[in-house]
């Protein structure tokens, strides 16, 4: 299966992968809580990085700092060589290149599914309506919700909504996709339909940062697993090594709690 290529990638950067997202010594506090502590993380082009760890370990915050939905206190983050700018037009332009998928979908409630996927293309990319509509329908077909195009988000199941959200992010042709616990709000039987779309994206070579509790996805799709606890990156390894032979006690403890039942 894909494990061969995974092993290749694990020893170093992916073959053609230059550095796409670089976090350098990032620190962040929420009041007294030090949520991100000295985070160094480099994500290469075409790489799939899965971030796992216990609740409150700072993994969602880490994901959200990459497109500056959360600001950082110290340290620097750069995307494709450009440091994240201050809030404003410059940042908006950069965010258009970074797809984001949320735990709670966050589809625009007053717009149809099709309009959700078209809006960014028209308003941000300035694509004309016809081209935007065609691309939106193609993407909706690709994630398997093409028949729902004219419904409103509230009329769709959670799994369908999340797939629309993925299509909405893809419509911007992002350089990297961030997934912030994309399946945590879903009923169990809908998790797979979302994971399958993500698997396909990973196979297509999309650069992805995925915060998740889905260990199966981490095993099969990740090039690298990042294990976080208490605001620190405790361990980074390729999935096989991480799951079969974790180095840190904290990771052993975490895995023993989630894998054996």
């Amino acid at each position: 299966m894909s494990e061969v290529s995974v092993t290749e990638n694990a020893d170093g950067p992916a073959p053609a992968g230059d550095q796409l997202v670089v976090l350098d010594n990032v620190n962040k506090h929420f009041g007294a809580l030090h949520v991100l502590q000295d985070i160094d993380l480099t994500i290469h082009r075409g790489e799939v990085v899965v971030v796992i760890g216990p609740s409150g370990s700072g993994k969602s915050t880490l994901c959200r700092t990459i497109n500056r939905l959360e600001t950082v206190d110290t340290g620097s983050i750069s995307i494709d060589g450009k440091p994240l700018p201050q809030e404003g037009r410059e940042l908006a332009r950069l965010r258009a290149d970074v797809g984001m998928v949320f735990q709670s979908f966050n589809l625009f409630a007053h717009k149809t599914v099709l309009e959700n996927v078209m809006l960014g293309q028209i308003k941000v990319r300035k694509t004309d309506r016809a081209a935007a509509s065609k691309k939106a329908r193609d993407l909706l077909d690709r994630v398997g919700v093409g028949t729902q195009a004219d419904k409103y988000p509230a009329q769709l199941s959670g799994g369908q909504q999340q797939r629309v959200a993925i299509a909405r992010a893809l419509a911007m042709d992002p350089k990297v996709m961030l997934f912030d616990e994309p399946t945590s709000a879903l009923d169990p039987e809908m998790i797979n339909e979302v994971l399958e779309v993500m698997q396909q994206l990973a196979r297509d070579g999309m650069t992805m940062v995925v915060v998740t509790h889905e260990m199966g996805f981490a095993r099969s799709a990740a090039n690298r697993v990042v294990f976080m606890a208490d605001g620190r990156i405790i361990e980074e390894a390729e999935p096989n090594q991480f799951f079969n032979n974790p180095r840190s006690d904290r990771a052993k403890d975490f895995l023993s709690k989630i894998l054996h039942h």
């Binding site: 497109n67 939905l69 809030e87 037009r89 908006a92 332009r93 950069l94 965010r95 258009a96 290149d97 970074v98 797809g99 984001m100 949320f102 709670s104 966050n106 589809l107 625009f108 409630a109 007053h110 809006l119 960014g120 308003k123 941000v124 959200a165 909405r168 992010a169 911007m172």
Partner: peptide, 26 residues
């Protein structure tokens, strides 16, 4: 919900676009 604005900003909308196209209509 705050998530509506976050989603709008995430696809690269400016503050004004977010307010006008996403927040105010809702």
């Amino acid at each position: 919900p705050l998530g509506q604005a976050e989603a709008a900003r995430s696809i690269g909308m400016t503050f004004l676009q977010t307010l006008r196209l996403i927040i105010l209509p809702q």
